[in-house]
Amino acid sequence: MGFKLLSKLLVYLTASIMAIASPLAFSVDSSGEYPTVSEIPVGEVRLYQIADGVWSHIATQSFDGAVYPSNGLIVRDGDELLLIDTAWGAKNTAALLAEIEKQIGLPVTRAVSTHFHDDRVGGVDVLRAAGVATYASPSTRRLAEVEGNEIPTHSLEGLSSSGDAVRFGPVELFYPGAAHSTDNLIVYVPSASVLYGGCAIYELSRTSAGNVADADLAEWPTSIERIQQHYPEAQFVIPGHGLPGGLDLLKHTTNVVKAHTNRSVVE
């Protein structure tokens, strides 16, 4: 069995187990497998329904001669939608809004960016022009300005110390501490036991640490421990890039980060 097929099978099995364990909360999309990078042309966006009122959005972007996937989250909030992270750029984010209108038909009224990198804030200006209120932590807003990236308009308070959590509509926002970046936030959907790890969490097929220019490698494993301790009931975990899975993604990420750190020390 090929690795790609095995990865998709694991996603399907995880979703099936969740649907059985929580039949009222989960209505997993039966329309197909989780979209992969090879299936999404740059400039297009796919939506994948995880649970009743919960979707991931998947886009792709060219970077350094390669094409990478990027995940975000959409959560229903009454007759409105909360968006977590842009679709990595203005063109993708405009396509995301169009796809949401086509498939869901509810307005996106608020959006949260989970850290300051372009795959999370690139497209904020498109959201703002569409009347979406954009939010991020003060740290993310400051770092985005320093980096020359787009800056969300509103500040999220109460997320300055490791372990801080605040309720934001249908989700809980959690600051686990520094990891992929010093400002990275985690998003949890309690009604569906869905954990969105953003770039602080890796997919299972990833074996290298990737972009760690703004990471705190020493603190990252401790931050992941905080996530595990705060959300032990999480059933569906979405990484910032690639295929979702279960809580095993947290341990896998820790292993990859520690291996990278150990290699760096040896070198």
Rank of each mutant, 00 (worst) to 15 (best):
L6W: 11
E33V: 13
A218N: 09
P239V: 09
A200V: 07
L5Q: 06
G197R: 01
P138R: 12
V126A: 06
F116R: 14
G123C: 03
A21Y: 13
H241I: 00
A130H: 14
K251I: 05
D125T: 07
P23Y: 07
V237M: 05
S191A: 08
A51K: 05
V166F: 15
L243M: 06
Y188N: 12
Y175G: 02
P176A: 12
A136N: 02
S137C: 05
V126E: 09
I84E: 01
S30M: 11
H260N: 07
S62I: 08
G2N: 15
V37T: 08
R120H: 03
S223I: 10
N255W: 08
A213T: 11
F26A: 05
S62V: 08
S193R: 09
P170E: 14
P239H: 00
R110S: 10
Q61S: 07
G32K: 10
L247G: 11
E80G: 13
H115K: 00
R206P: 10
L204V: 12
E225L: 10
E33Y: 14
P176W: 00
I238T: 03
V45E: 02
L195G: 00
A87G: 12
K258M: 13
I224G: 02
D52N: 08
V108A: 14
D118C: 08
V112S: 02
A209L: 08
V42H: 09
T60E: 07
R167H: 04
V54C: 04
T140R: 02
Y12N: 14
R141V: 08
G78K: 12
V42T: 12
A178Q: 14
L13I: 15
V212D: 08
G78Y: 12
L127P: 02
D85W: 00
K8G: 11
G245W: 03
T153D: 05
R142P: 02
A111K: 03
P170T: 06
D64T: 09
D248S: 12
L81E: 02
F63E: 10
A90E: 09
A218C: 15
V171K: 00
K4C: 08
Y188G: 03
S56Y: 05
I74A: 11
L249C: 01
C199N: 00
Q228K: 06
N92M: 15
G65K: 07
L106A: 13
S139G: 09
W55F: 12
G53R: 06
G122C: 04
V194F: 04
H154F: 15
V166Y: 11
S22K: 05
E33W: 11
T14M: 05
T93G: 00
I84T: 05
H154D: 10
P239G: 14
S205V: 08
A129M: 11
T109C: 04
P41I: 11
W220Y: 04
F63Y: 05
I58K: 09
I17T: 04
F116H: 10
S162I: 15
A215I: 14
K251R: 07
A111D: 04
A144K: 05
A218R: 13
H154K: 05
G210T: 12
L6C: 07
D214E: 12
S161N: 13
S155V: 11
G53K: 13
G158T: 14
S113R: 03
D52V: 07
P232H: 15
V194P: 00
A59P: 02
V124A: 08
E99S: 14
R226F: 06
L185M: 15
A218G: 10
G242I: 02
K102P: 04
Y202V: 08
L81T: 14
E44Q: 06
L9Y: 07
D214T: 08
T253R: 00
L97C: 04
S62N: 11
L195H: 02
R46E: 07
Y202G: 10
I40D: 15
P244I: 14
I201L: 14
T36C: 13
W55V: 03
A94M: 13
H154V: 09
L156H: 02
S162C: 13
G122N: 11
A215F: 08
T207D: 14
A259D: 15
P23N: 04
I151E: 06
Y188E: 01
V124E: 08
G123I: 02
Q235W: 12
I17Y: 05
G158S: 07
V265C: 06
A98Q: 12
